[in-house]
Design a protein around this nucleic acid. Structure first.
Length: 275
DNA sequence: CCGACAACCTGTGAGC
DNA sequence: TGCTCACAGGTTGTCG
């Protein structure tokens, strides 16, 4: 479910509700996520004030001063602000309880497929191995044409797979990789090292634009993705190619095609994407 | 270092 | 209506 725009949308919603609040405890109903949730989570967080909630790639990091929580929503996760006494539903695995200016609240983590994770990192959370080796943020300064061209040098994999590689750039998942390549007019199966410097400049630009557009639309709502406050996003109404196999391209009328790349579905327009 | 692929797990929709 | 199958937003780890 969540790609970078959905995670960022979640972060903003959560931050608005509980920034500067203090954790009063945690309830773990099912700690069997991708990696085990710390069994002593309740003790770890109790009494700690939330200094900041930041996003790195698709991770949400709760900075608690000396130590931090690292949360990933995986494929099917969501984090919502709810009243603490609201009954938990199926797959509501964790509640992080807070108290602050808005009174007692709960951050409720739901994740049917349990591909997500919630980890504790002492000291500086950015030093956690999962975060330490990530590539640059797509919306940050480190992601420009010169960087991308260099990062793709010597890589023969298809550009779409390279774009989804977290060492090249973080936060670009299957949906937005498809959409960005369409906007750039680049074939998804083109070898990454065959892109010119100019292609890279174009690609950087459309990746940033696509993600920014999606954030502005409140992310995408596939199946049941909802924001921190339960509202849906609307970016999926703007998809040019994703999920549109055999439908006419909005730009040229050609039928959108579908193929498999690295066990994932790729959608592209054979006419608009010939570079 | 690079690339290919299996694995983690549940839900949903299509087809029969 | 109910069964089976393919597929779904992500990422790590292993193997050649």
């Amino acid at each position: 479910m969540p790609e970078l725009p959905e995670v960022e949308t979640t972060r903003r919603g959560i931050a608005q509700a509980v920034d500067t609040a203090t954790f009063t405890g945690a309830i773990v109903r099912n700690g069997s996520l991708r990696w085990p949730v710390p069994p002593d989570l309740d003790d770890l967080v109790r009494g700690r004030r939330i200094q900041a909630i930041v996003r790195r790639a698709k991770y949400l990091v709760f900075d608690l001063g000396s130590g931090g929580l690292i949360l990933h929503l995986g494929m099917s996760g969501s984090l919502r602000v709810v009243a603490p006494d609201r009954p938990a539903e199926k797959h509501d695995h964790i509640d992080l309880l807070t108290d602050g200016p808005a009174g007692p609240q709960a951050l409720r983590y739901r994740d049917p497929r349990r591909f997500g994770c919630l980890l504790w990192q002492p000291g500086d959370a950015a030093l956690h191995p999962l975060l330490a080796s990530l590539g640059p943020e797509p919306l940050g300064d480190g992601f420009d044409a010169a960087y991308l061209h260099g990062a793709l040098a010597g890589r023969q994999v298809a550009i779409k797979l390279a774009l989804m590689d977290n060492h090249v750039v973080v936060g670009v998942g299957n949906i937005y990789a498809n959409e960005a390549l369409f906007r750039a007019g680049i074939r998804p199966d083109r070898p990454a090292n065959a892109l010119s410097r100019r292609d890279c400049a174009r690609l950087v630009e459309v990746v940033r634009q696509t993600l920014a557009d999606a954030i502005a639309a409140g992310g995408s709502t596939l199946r049941d993705f909802l924001h921190a406050d339960g509202q849906p996003g609307y970016f999926q109404q703007q998809y040019a190619v994703y999920g549109r196999a055999d439908e006419p391209c909005h730009a040229c009328g050609s039928l959108v095609r579908q193929m498999r790349q690295g066990q994932r579905s790729t959608f592209w327009c054979p006419h608009c994407q010939r570079r």
